[in-house]
């Protein structure tokens, strides 16, 4: 019970900070909208070719916007000295990881929730799809990306040029997530049921489980000062 309240305290702190300056959400959101506009120039909406590229575009958008948000996740702590506070906290450092992952997933999902309808309208996509399946894929993909992204954000915060290092570390490692998520999104948009994409879903769950556990165990080494 105590663990839960500790995790909740850090989550509350991050949400409060975000509520006050709205840095993460606003930068991710504006970036996503810009990407949608740019892709609109590249691909002709309504074209049958465009339909095939939409899942890829969607996931490129999610990981690029996610990268922006993740970079702020620790960048902000460092700038304002919050990291010292976290280190001095009398709690297990791994719970900081759990809290940060939850916050990052929440921010990313929030941005997805706003961007996706806009995406839908602008690219004239069919409303007749398996919506819960799409939500599940979005959630699993975002979780996997945030699981590795959170620890890499903490690692790259120590480097000289953290904005450059984060995507260099994060994108190659998250190849399986992006691949599995964009392939299953493509299937869902083409009208497949959850059963037809069970292989990819299992892959996403596997990735999430492996990296949530591994990063949870490794996090204390990142946080030593």
């Amino acid at each position: 019970m105590e663990i839960l309240s500790q995790i909740f305290a850090i989550i509350r702190k991050d949400l409060l900070m975000e509520l006050r300056d709205k840095q993460v959400i606003s930068s991710m959101l504006v970036f996503s909208l810009i990407v949608v506009v740019i892709f609109n120039f590249v691909f002709e909406p309504g074209d049958s070719q465009t339909k095939l590229t939409i899942p890829g575009v969607l996931w490129v958008l999610i990981i690029f916007a996610g990268n922006l948000g993740l970079a702020r996740s620790f960048g902000r702590e460092r700038e304002q000295g919050g990291i010292q506070g976290l280190i001095l906290c009398p709690i297990d450092k791994s719970y900081i990881y759990i809290a940060k992952v939850i916050v990052n997933i929440f921010f990313m999902m929030l941005v997805e929730a706003i961007t996706l309808p806009i995406f839908w309208v602008l690219f004239d996509m069919s409303p007749d799809i398996n919506f819960p399946a799409l939500l599940l894929v979005l959630f699993l993909g975002t979780t996997g990306f945030a699981a590795v992204g959170t620890i890499f954000s903490a690692i790259s915060a120590h480097t000289k040029s953290s904005e450059v290092m984060l995507p260099i570390l994060l994108f190659p490692v998250s190849v399986p997530v992006v691949l599995a998520a964009s392939k299953s999104t493509a299937k869902i948009l083409a009208g497949s049921s959850l059963g037809e994409i069970s292989g990819w879903i299992k892959m996403l769950i596997g990735f999430d489980a492996v990296f949530l556990i591994a990063c949870f165990l490794l996090y204390e080494y990142v946080f030593e000062e």
Partner: peptide, 27 residues
């Protein structure tokens, strides 16, 4: 710090190898 952080990355990177392989193999 460089040693510690890159060790963490080295472990995560290696864990990723079989998953990358499996995912692309299905593809």
């Amino acid at each position: 710090k460089a040693a510690r952080l890159s060790a963490v990355f080295g472990i995560i990177g290696f864990l990723d190898v079989p998953i990358v392989y499996m995912s692309i193999r299905w593809w």
